Structure formats: structure tokens, C-alpha cells
Amino acid sequence: MIFIKFDLTFTITATIAFVSLVSPIITALINNYHSRNMKRLEIEQENIRNNILHKRDLLENYLTATAAFSYEEQHTPEQIKELLNSYYLILPYIPGKYHTYFSEYSELIVDGVMDESNFKRARYLIGNYIIPCIKTEIEKM
């Protein structure tokens, strides 16, 4: 019978040497993986923040353009153009059920005939549909 003499001190020393060589590599791989995930999350968060700021700016610009029409009787072509541009820019962000109200308001403005009935209808649309819709969209952010 052949007995192999097993030196335990060499085995322990070899194991410690192997682990000391491999552990920095594993630690670096884990750190790199974590850093990549954190950077991806930061980029996603920044994109979400930028989208929210963009949407808020569009909604505020529309409200500003709408306010100009609420208090002035004479409207310049530039004001009408600004309101229509603002309208078309916010249209993708407005829920579908409100599109008809925004569209009707824009048509009232573009027609340019602001007699008493059109003025009342415009004020009604602004107060009952447009501003509450924009307020809801801003609160969702």
C-alpha cells in the first residue's frame, strides 16, 4: 500500500496565495459592474428630469401665450403664431379626451372673430378644461 504524504502547510499556503491573487480581480469586477449600473441609473434619472423640465416649459409657455389673449382685445399675427406654436408643441402631452377643447380654443383664436359669444366660449374652455388639464399634467410630474 502506498501512502502519499500530504503536507498541510503547503496546501494552506497555496490556497491563501491563490485567494490573495484572485480576490482583487473579483472585487474589481464587482465594483465595475456596480459603477456601470449606477451610471446607467444616473443617466436615466437625468433623462427623466430633462423630459419633465421640457414638458413643464412647454405647458408654461402655452399658458403665457393664452394669458396674452385673455387680456388683450387686439391680437398681433406674432401673438397668434406664438399661441399656435405653443398649442402644437403641447398637443402630444395632452390627454386625448382634452384635445377637442384645446382644438376648439385654437380655432376660436385663429378665426380672429372675438365677439361676445366667442369670447365667453374661449373663457369657458380656458377655465373649465384647459387650465385644469394643464394643472393635472403639471401635478403628475
Rank of each mutant, 00 (worst) to 15 (best):
M1R: 09
F3I: 07
F6Y: 07
D7N: 09
L8S: 10
T9M: 08
T11S: 07
I16F: 11
L21S: 10
L21Y: 11
V22C: 15
S23N: 05
I26M: 09
I26K: 05
A28R: 11
L29M: 12
I30W: 06
N32T: 03
N32F: 05
Y33D: 07
Y33L: 10
N37R: 09
K39G: 02
R40P: 02
R40N: 11
L41P: 00
E42P: 03
E42I: 05
E44C: 14
Q45K: 10
Q45I: 13
Q45Y: 08
N47S: 14
I48D: 15
I48C: 12
R49A: 11
L53A: 08
K55Q: 04
R56M: 06
D57E: 14
E60M: 14
E60V: 14
L63M: 15
L63C: 03
T64H: 07
T64M: 15
A67H: 15
A67N: 14
S70F: 08
Y71Q: 13
Y71V: 15
E72M: 13
E73T: 11
E73K: 11
E73D: 14
P77S: 10
I80A: 03
I80N: 00
K81D: 01
L83T: 03
N85P: 06
S86Y: 02
S86E: 00
Y88M: 12
Y88C: 09
Y88E: 10
L89H: 01
I90R: 01
P92N: 06
I94D: 01
I94S: 01
Y98G: 01
Y98I: 07
Y98A: 03
E104C: 04
Y105R: 01
S106Q: 06
L108F: 07
L108S: 02
V110N: 15
D111H: 09
G112Q: 02
M114T: 03
D115Y: 01
R121V: 01
R121G: 00
L125W: 01
I126K: 02
I126D: 00
N128Q: 14
K135Y: 13
K135H: 15
T136W: 14
K140A: 14
K140W: 15
M141D: 09
